[in-house]
Design a protein around this nucleic acid. Structure first.
Length: 596
RNA sequence: GCCAGAAUAGCUCAGUGGUAGAGCAGCUCACUCGUAAUGAGCAGGUCCUCGGUUCAAGUCCGAGUUCUGGCUCCA
C-alpha cells in the first residue's frame, strides 16, 4: 500500500496555512526523534542507532541496545529529553563528503549501510543537536527552543526489524507523540482514550456481541445472539440491495480438491495462507481461502453467450486463511471470515459500465451504513504481472473514469496492483477520523485464462470474458468490528440488536409491559421487556448501558391510555406517546436508517 | 513467525514466598417502586498449562499456550 502517496494525499492543495502547519509539525517531530536519540545515547553510549523519522501524530527511533527497555527507561529518557530541550540547543546542518561521514559513523553499522545507499551525487548531510550527530536529510527546527517539553510523550517500546524485513536484526523502537503545545498533546491523548473506549473487543464483551475461544482456536469468531442479530440485519439489507442491484446470489462449498487450487494457481502463490489439506478418499481437499474458483466452475457449467453477460454473482462466502499468530486482532484480523464477495463477468465492451456500476453501488451502500468520507486508491501494474499492457491500460482507464464520474478523490498507487490485475480500493473514514480499507474492486486477467473461460460473441467466435472480483464490506467480521467502533456501540436503530425495551414502573404493570412488547414485535420491531425484579431506575440504567435506542416506561397512566413514556438513548423524553404513534415513528426511523 | 509486556471468580482488578480477596454480574429472600444502581444473604477459583527450585509457590526459574503493543512511514 502506498504510504508515500498517503502523505502526499493527506496534505492536498488546501489553504497554505494548513500545509505550513503540517511541515512545521513534521520538522518538530523529526527533531524530537533526534532529541530522543541523544537521550538514549546518554544512557547507552554504545547503542547502535538505526532510523528515526516523523510519523503521523509523532515519531519513533530504532535502536539496537544491550538490553530490553523498561517503562522506567522511558521515564528516564523523557526527563533527559526535557533537559536537552531546556538547553535551547541549535540543530546544526553540515554537508560532508562520504568519507567524512563514514568516519563520523565508524562503528554504526546501520548508519554506514544507510550512507552507502545514498545515490552517488546526492548530498550527504549531518545534523547535530547537543552531543548527537545523525546522518539526516532534515529538515529540522532551528533549535530545541522550538520544541515544547510539555507537548510530547513517549508512548511505547516495540520490536521492529531493521528495514522492516524479518530476516534482519530485530531492533527496539520507541514511539512518541509530539505536538506544538500541551493543549494539542492533551487533545491527542484524549483521542487515544476515546479510541480505547470504543475498542470493538471491549464493546463486544460489554454488549455481549461476540467472543473468541483460545481452546478452540485463535482468530475464529463466535457471534453471540446480539451480534448475530446485527449481522442478520446487515445480511438482510445486503441481500436485498444486491438483488435490486442486478446481482444473483450463490452458495458454494467450503472445500475443494487440489485440482481446483492447482488450476487457480493458489497452491502456487497463496499456499502459505492456506490451511493444510485433509485427505478424503485419497484426494487432498483444501478449505477455501477464496470463493472465486467455485464461481468460475458455475460459470463454466454451461456455454455462455455474449447475451448472458454481464453476470454479477455474489456470495457471502466463508473462507479460512492462515494468518501468522502475531497479526491476529479481534475482529479486524482473523483466520475465518465471511467475505461479501462478488464476481462480475463481462465483455470488454461492458467493462466501463460495470466498473462504474459496482463503484456507484458500493458508495450507495456505504452511505446507508453512515459512512460518506471515502477515498479511492488506484493501484497499477506491478513489475511481475500477467495480462497484456493493453489490457492493463484499458482496465486502469476504466477504473479512473469511474472514480472521476463519481467525483471521488483518489490517489495512485503505482505498481501496487496484484500481479493479475489493477484495482481500486476504497478507504472509509470513521467517526474518529481513522481510515479503514474496506472495499476492493480488482480486475483479474489470470483466472479466466487458467480456467479457460469463454463466451460466444456476436461473430460466433469464442472469446475470453473479463473478470472482476469485488468485496464491498470486505468481510462481515472486519466490517462489524469497524461498525462497532464507528458507532461506539450505539448502533443506528435499524441495526440495534434490541431496538426498544419496555420497562414497567412497578410489578403491577408487567402485564401491560408484555402487551406493549408483543405489539412492537408484531410490528417487526426488535423489542424486549424488562421483567426482572430490579427497580425501574436500575432497568433504565441497564438499558442505557446496553445502548438500547428506545426505553418505554409504562405505568398506570400509560396502561389506561394505551400509550408509552418514551426515553431515548440520547436522554430525550416524551411522555404519553400513543403506542401506535410510537410504532409508526420507529418504523420510519428504521426505514430511513436514521441514527436515532 | 520475531521483539516486548500480560494472564488471579463471568467482568474489572487487589494480593512480592507462609490458610486466595473486593466491587460489579449471578442465585435466594424481602420491598406497591415514575426516567442512570433498593436492601440483606448465599454461592462462585486447577491463581493459563506443564515442569523445576523451596519445608512452603498465585508470588521465584524454565518451557509452552493465548492475549496486548509493534514489526508499512526510508538518513
Amino acid at each position: 500500500m502506498g504510504t508515500k502517496g498517503i502523505q502526499a494525499f493527506c496534505f492536498p492543495r488546501r489553504r497554505k496555512t494548513m500545509a505550513e502547519k503540517d511541515d512545521t509539525l513534521l520538522a518538530l517531530r523529526h527533531s524530537m526523534s533526534h532529541v530522543m536519540a541523544d537521550a538514549v545515547l546518554e544512557i547507552f553510549p554504545d547503542a547502535q542507532i538505526a532510523i528515526g523519522p516523523a510519523i503521523d501524530n509523532g515519531f519513533y527511533y530504532d535502536f539496537e541496545l544491550p538490553r530490553s527497555l523498561t517503562p522506567e527507561d522511558l521515564e528516564d529518557i523523557t526527563s533527559r529529553m526535557k533537559n536537552i530541550i531546556a538547553g535551547k540547543l541549535p540543530f546544526e546542518k553540515r554537508v560532508v563528503s562520504r568519507k567524512e561521514a563514514a568516519e563520523v559513523f565508524a562503528g554504526q553499522k546501520y548508519k554506514i549501510e544507510l550512507l552507502e545507499a545514498i545515490p552517488e551525487g546526492d548530498e550527504v548531510s549531518l545534523y547535530t543537536v547537543g552531543k548527537f550527530t545523525d546522518l539526516c536529510r532534515g529538515p529540522h527546527v532551528e533549535s530545541t527552543a522550538r520544541l515544547n517539553a510539555e507537548a510530547f510523550k513517549l508512548l511505547s517500546v516495540a520490536g521492529a526489524y531493521w528495514r522492516g524485513d524479518e530476516h534482519n536484526q530485530m531492533l527496539q523502537r520507541i514511539y512518541g507523540t509530539a505536538w506544538e503545545n500541551p493543549k494539542d498533546l492533551r487533545l491527542y491523548l484524549q483521542h487515544l482514550e476515546e479510541v480505547e473506549k470504543r475498542d470493538h473487543r471491549k464493546l463486544g464483551r460489554e454488549l455481549d456481541l461476540f467472543s473468541t475461544h483460545e481452546e478452540a482456536g485463535p482468530g475464529l469468531i463466535y457471534w453471540h445472539p446480539k451480534g448475530a442479530r446485527i449481522r442478520l440485519a446487515i445480511e438482510d439489507y445486503w441481500r436485498k440491495r444486491h438483488y435490486e442491484g442486478g446481482y444473483e446470489q450463490l452458495y458454494t462449498p467450503h472445500v475443494g480438491k487440489s485440482w481446483l487450487w492447482e488450476t487457480s494457481g493458489h497452491l502456487g502463490f497463496y499456499n502459505e495462507n492456506m490451511y493444510a489439506p485433509m485427505e478424503v478418499d485419497k484426494s487432498d481437499y483444501y478449505i477455501k481461502p477464496m470463493n472465486c474458483p467455485f464461481h468460475i466452475l458455475i460459470y463454466k457449467n454451461s456455454m455462455k453467450s455474449y447475451r448472458d453477460l454481464p453476470l454479477r454473482w455474489a456470495e457471502l462466502g466463508t473462507v479460512y486463511r492462515y494468518e501468522r499468530s502475531g497479526v491476529l486482532h479481534g475482529l479486524l484480523r482473523v483466520r475465518g471470515f465471511t467475505q461479501d464477495d462478488a464476481h462480475l463477468f463481462c465483455t470488454p465492451e461492458q467493462m466501463e459500465e460495470e466498473i462504474l456500476g459496482v463503484l456507484r453501488f458500493s458508495l450507495s451502500i456505504w452511505k446507508d451504513f453512515g459512512f460518506s468520507d471515502i477515498k479511492a486508491y488506484l493501484a497499477t501494474k506491478p513489475e511481475k504481472s500477467v495480462g497484456s499492457q493493453e489490457d492493463w491500460d484499458r482496465a486502469i482507464q476504466s477504473l479512473k473514469k469511474a472514480i472521476d464520474a463519481e467525483g471521488l478523490t483518489y490517489e495512485m498507487d503505482e505498481g501496487g496492483g496484484a500481479f493479475y490485475g489493477p484495482k481500486i480500493d476504497l478507504k472509509i473514514k470513521d467517526a474518529l477520523g481513522r481510515e479503514w480499507q474496506m472495499t476492493t474492486i480488482q480486475f483479474d486477467f489470470n483466472l479466466p485464462e487458467r480456467f479457460d473461460m469463454t463466451f460466444v460473441d456476436h461473430d460466433g467466435k469464442e472469446k475470453r470474458p473479463l473478470m472482476i472480483h469485488r468485496a464491498l464490506l470486505g468481510s462481515l467480521e472486519r466490517f462489524f468490528g469497524v461498525l462497532v467502533e464507528h458507532y461506539g456501540g450505539a448502533f443506528p436503530v435499524w441495526l440495534s440488536p434490541v431496538q426498544a425495551v419496555v420497562i414497567p414502573v412497578a410489578p403491577a404493570f408487567e402485564g401491560y409491559a408484555a402487551q406493549v412488547a408483543d405489539a412492537l414485535k408484531t410490528a417487526g420491531i426488535r423489542a424486549e421487556k424488562d421483567l426482572t425484579d430490579n427497580r425501574m431506575n436500575a432497568k433504565i440504567r441497564n438499558a442505557q448501558n446496553e445502548k438500547i435506542p428506545y426505553m418505554l416506561v409504562v405505568g398506570e397512566r400509560e396502561e389506561q391510555e394505551s400509550s408509552v413514556s418514551l426515553r431515548k438513548r440520547n436522554g430525550d423524553r416524551e411522555n404519553g406517546v400513543p403506542l401506535q404513534n410510537f410504532i409508526d415513528s420507529v418504523k420510519e426511523v428504521i426505514a430511513r436508517k436514521e441514527l436515532l
